[in-house]
């Protein structure tokens, strides 16, 4: 177990000192572009998660099951963009990110948001009524609300990484 952790840290050290990491720090196509795309993915994933929660709590009454499914599909694409760019940003300074408490809190919130959104997505697929509307599901509603709160928490903690860690100083 300890050996595994040591190897992982060695790998992260290696990646943080690689040519890729150097390119990330000097090229405008590196860190600046990736962080910008990370924000676009964030807007789509978090914003659409919020829209689905509003729907499940009755604020968007004429939004049927099919549009909600499509919104969750697009939210998943947004999250995929976040994941890919996030991993590339992580590779740049892996050991430093792992030592940052605020980053680890962000990751926990991202995990909660992503896991609950996936469950909501599956429940929405199963909640078809013959008319195409969504069947009222209290569990999906609460999960969606918790997911949206976790996503917004991830947005705030993500922003605070710059202030509560030494990563960008």
């Amino acid at each position: 177990m300890t050996l595994g952790l040591g190897r992982t840290l060695n790998l992260l050290e290696y990646l943080a000192n690689s040519q890729f990491s150097y390119w990330m720090s000097v090229s405008m196509a590196g860190f600046p572009t990736l962080i910008a795309l990370h924000s676009v993915g964030m807007g789509a994933a978090v914003g659409l998660s919020m829209a689905v929660t509003l729907k499940l709590y009755g604020a968007l009454p004429d939004l049927g099951r099919y549009p909600v499914q499509r919104l969750l599909d697009v939210a998943t694409w947004g999250f995929t963009l976040n994941l890919v760019t996030g991993l590339m940003l992580f590779i740049d300074r892996g050991p430093e990110y792992l030592a940052s408490g605020i980053f680890l809190l962000k990751m926990l919130l991202v995990f909660i948001g992503a896991a609950l959104t996936l469950v909501v997505r599956q429940r929405v697929r199963a909640l078809a009524s013959p008319s195409g509307t969504l069947v009222d599901d209290g569990v999906a509603r609460v999960m969606s609300l918790v997911a949206t709160i976790a996503w917004f928490g991830a947005v705030v903690t993500g922003r605070l990484i710059a202030y509560l860690s030494d990563l960008y100083r």
Binding site: S39, A44, V156, G158
Partner: peptide
């Protein structure tokens, strides 16, 4: 940033 997500989600 939170407000940006609300704006982006609504417009999407």
């Amino acid at each position: 940033f939170v407000s940006l997500c609300v704006l982006m989600g609504s417009l999407l």
